[in-house]
Amino acid sequence: MPRYALQIEYHGAPFAGWQRQAEQPSVQAAVEAALRRLEPDAPGIAAAGRTDAGVHATAQVAQCDLARDWDPFRLSEALNHHLRPLPVAILQAARVADDFHARFSAIERRYLFRLVSRRAPVTHDAGLVWQVRHPLALAPMQEAASHLLGLHDFTTFRSTLCQAASPVKTLDELTITEHPVPQGTEFRFHLRARSFLHNQVRSFVGSLERVGAGSWPPDRLRAALEARDRAACGPVSPPQGLYLCGVGYPEDPFAAAPQGGDDPVSAALRSDP
Rank of each mutant, 00 (worst) to 15 (best):
residue 2 P to D: 09
residue 4 Y to S: 05
residue 5 A to W: 09
residue 5 A to T: 14
residue 8 I to K: 06
residue 9 E to S: 10
residue 9 E to Y: 09
residue 12 G to R: 03
residue 13 A to H: 03
residue 17 G to V: 11
residue 19 Q to H: 12
residue 22 A to G: 04
residue 24 Q to I: 00
residue 27 V to T: 08
residue 28 Q to L: 10
residue 28 Q to G: 12
residue 29 A to T: 05
residue 29 A to Y: 00
residue 33 A to M: 07
residue 33 A to N: 12
residue 36 R to L: 13
residue 39 E to G: 01
residue 42 A to M: 11
residue 43 P to G: 04
residue 47 A to H: 03
residue 47 A to M: 03
residue 48 A to M: 09
residue 49 G to T: 00
residue 50 R to M: 07
residue 53 A to V: 10
residue 56 H to I: 12
residue 59 A to K: 03
residue 59 A to G: 12
residue 60 Q to H: 13
residue 63 Q to P: 00
residue 65 D to A: 14
residue 65 D to M: 00
residue 68 R to M: 10
residue 71 D to P: 04
residue 73 F to N: 02
residue 77 E to Q: 15
residue 81 H to A: 11
residue 82 H to E: 13
residue 82 H to T: 00
residue 85 P to A: 06
residue 86 L to G: 01
residue 87 P to E: 03
residue 89 A to G: 03
residue 92 Q to Y: 07
residue 92 Q to C: 00
residue 94 A to K: 02
residue 95 R to D: 01
residue 98 D to E: 15
residue 98 D to K: 09
residue 101 H to M: 04
residue 107 I to R: 14
residue 110 R to A: 12
residue 110 R to M: 04
residue 112 L to V: 13
residue 114 R to D: 05
residue 115 L to V: 15
residue 115 L to Y: 08
residue 116 V to H: 10
residue 117 S to C: 12
residue 122 V to Y: 04
residue 125 D to V: 09
residue 126 A to L: 15
residue 131 Q to C: 06
residue 132 V to A: 06
residue 141 M to E: 08
residue 142 Q to E: 14
residue 144 A to I: 09
residue 145 A to H: 03
residue 145 A to Q: 07
residue 146 S to K: 13
residue 147 H to C: 10
residue 150 G to L: 12
residue 152 H to Y: 09
residue 153 D to R: 09
residue 154 F to P: 01
residue 155 T to R: 14
residue 157 F to K: 01
residue 158 R to K: 15
residue 159 S to C: 05
residue 164 A to R: 12
residue 168 V to K: 02
residue 171 L to V: 10
residue 173 E to C: 08
residue 176 I to R: 08
residue 177 T to M: 01
residue 180 P to V: 03
residue 180 P to K: 04
residue 181 V to P: 08
residue 183 Q to G: 06
residue 185 T to C: 11
residue 187 F to G: 01
residue 188 R to G: 00
residue 188 R to D: 06
residue 189 F to V: 07
residue 189 F to K: 05
residue 191 L to N: 01
residue 193 A to D: 03
residue 194 R to Q: 15
residue 194 R to K: 14
residue 196 F to Y: 14
residue 196 F to P: 05
residue 197 L to V: 04
residue 198 H to A: 08
residue 199 N to E: 14
residue 200 Q to V: 06
residue 201 V to G: 05
residue 205 V to R: 00
residue 206 G to A: 11
residue 208 L to E: 05
residue 209 E to W: 02
residue 210 R to I: 00
residue 211 V to C: 04
residue 211 V to H: 02
residue 213 A to M: 11
residue 214 G to P: 06
residue 214 G to Q: 03
residue 215 S to M: 05
residue 217 P to Q: 12
residue 222 R to D: 12
residue 224 A to L: 08
residue 224 A to V: 08
residue 226 E to N: 10
residue 226 E to Y: 00
residue 228 R to N: 07
residue 228 R to G: 04
residue 229 D to C: 13
residue 231 A to K: 14
residue 232 A to V: 06
residue 232 A to K: 07
residue 232 A to Y: 07
residue 233 C to L: 10
residue 235 P to G: 07
residue 241 G to W: 11
residue 242 L to E: 07
residue 243 Y to G: 05
residue 245 C to S: 14
residue 247 V to K: 07
residue 248 G to A: 15
residue 250 P to W: 12
residue 253 P to Q: 02
residue 254 F to W: 13
residue 255 A to M: 03
residue 255 A to L: 15
residue 255 A to Y: 04
residue 259 Q to V: 09
residue 259 Q to I: 00
residue 261 G to E: 01
residue 261 G to M: 02
residue 266 S to Y: 01
residue 269 L to N: 03
residue 269 L to C: 11
residue 271 S to R: 15
residue 271 S to Y: 01
